[in-house]
Design a protein around this nucleic acid. Structure first.
Lengths: 191, 191
DNA sequence: GTCTATAGCCAGATAGAC
DNA sequence: GTCTATCTGGCTATAGAC
């Protein structure tokens, strides 16, 4: 946290949190700065004291997700020593959010997809880390399990989750995600 | 095709085709009517002769995709009698578009995800059929193979494809989709 | 640092000539 | 049916008072 952030009394954090929620529920393109500012209880014009442009808010939102992912993965590593248990913990945790995911999809996957469609100018932030981070972590776990095809297994497991999240939100069916998450966990156990 | 469409000399079709391409490459929300009209070689104001509002264009785009899916599935059914071969044909065909998918994701999945985020008003069209149609078709094939868990297998296969499409576009890696499509085909063969 | 007011732009949508 | 001209509103972003 920088000095100016400390002086800002948490307003920047409130803006980012409001943007995270709004981007997730309504999408990046359809969310206006006014929406974000209102949700954070801050006048619209004041947003530009904290962010030079909307794309900077997008970058801050991506960064917030990255921090959250790192924290979640670190927590799983602290709670479970065995790579197999760590993998199961990750996919079980994701299934725990099935109601939300059935409404809006995976927070990471939907954000990643929307942003990857307009990576043209230099102002467009890169969201690929949102996929790469958990994917590489899964790969590490499979490698620790002694699998030579760790990267392939990681892609298979993570893609199964992402695809199911997409299906469950399209069909508005949380049960789909819960069943598939159990199947993935059982599959990890069987390896 | 209605009478007025016949009289229109294919302009409506050109608009829909341009919208399909633009929505896929840049997203629905960030594509303006001016973009679509220009790509179709039609003045902006004239768009409203064919569509009352932008949401009607979205509905027409969804419908165009539905027609395309039906045609593709019918072609596969005509070319292959065995359900196992039909499934393999579908996932092989998808892998054939890996370069495009690595750029913009699955045309169906990305459209579905974006639209499902703002299904509030009555003007918002429903895109869930884009997932339901191929999903149900896969289920029918698995059932024809004598599987009791046909619906679950269909979800598993289709989610694997959707998730891999998302990953391969996030990481800009067509090879990922090709490898996983081969794996899905081999898995279908093993059932 | 915080907020108000507003500029400037571009989108979606309409009116009406031809 | 086709097209031009234009209205209206909301959005991003800025200027400047406090």
């Amino acid at each position: 946290m920088t000095d100016s952030e400390l002086r800002a009394g948490g307003k920047r954090e409130r803006l980012v949190a409001a943007a995270v929620a709004a981007f997730y529920a309504h999408g990046v393109a359809t969310t206006s700065l006014a929406d974000i500012a209102q949700a954070a209880g801050i006048p619209v014009g004041n947003v530009y004291y904290y962010f030079k442009a909307k794309s900077d808010i997008v970058a801050a939102v991506i960064d917030a997700h990255v921090q959250q992912i790192r924290a979640q993965l670190a927590a799983i590593e602290a709670a479970h020593a065995a790579p197999r248990e760590r993998l199961k913990a990750l996919f079980t945790a994701m299934a725990g959010e099935s109601d939300l995911i059935a409404q809006f999809g995976c927070p990471l996957g939907s954000l990643c997809q929307e942003i990857s469609k307009h990576e043209e100018g230099e102002s467009a932030p890169d969201a690929s880390g949102l996929m790469r981070l958990p994917l590489d972590w899964c790969g590490q776990q499979f490698r620790a399990m002694g699998r030579d095809d760790a990267a392939e297994l990681a892609a298979q497991a993570f893609a199964a989750y992402q695809g199911t999240a997409l299906l469950s939100s399209a069909l508005r069916d949380p049960g789909l995600l819960e069943r598939e998450s159990r199947r993935i966990a059982a599959w990890v156990d069987s390896l």
